[in-house]
């Protein structure tokens, strides 16, 4: 069971990474136009947003 010493922190870290990723996406406004973003991907135009 010694492996738990590694596995628990590793799984927590990975989960935390997902949570941090969600926060990042939220702050970047990636949930502001879900409808539009799903269509823009089909667009051949170069899209520089979000640029900052």
């Amino acid at each position: 069971m010694d492996v738990l010493i590694w596995l628990i922190p590793v799984s927590l870290f990975l989960g935390g990474l997902g949570l941090a990723g969600f926060f990042w996406a939220l702050r970047k406004g990636q949930f502001e136009d879900p409808e539009g973003d799903s269509r823009r991907i089909l667009n051949p135009d170069y899209d520089e947003k979000p640029k900052d």
């Binding site: 502001e32 136009d33 879900p34 409808e35 539009g36 269509r39 947003k49």
Partner: peptide, 12 residues
């Protein structure tokens, strides 16, 4: 003329 950028929000 006069427009710098325009961004459509399809959801809203």
């Amino acid at each position: 003329p006069g427009v710098r950028t325009a961004r459509v929000n399809l959801t809203l």
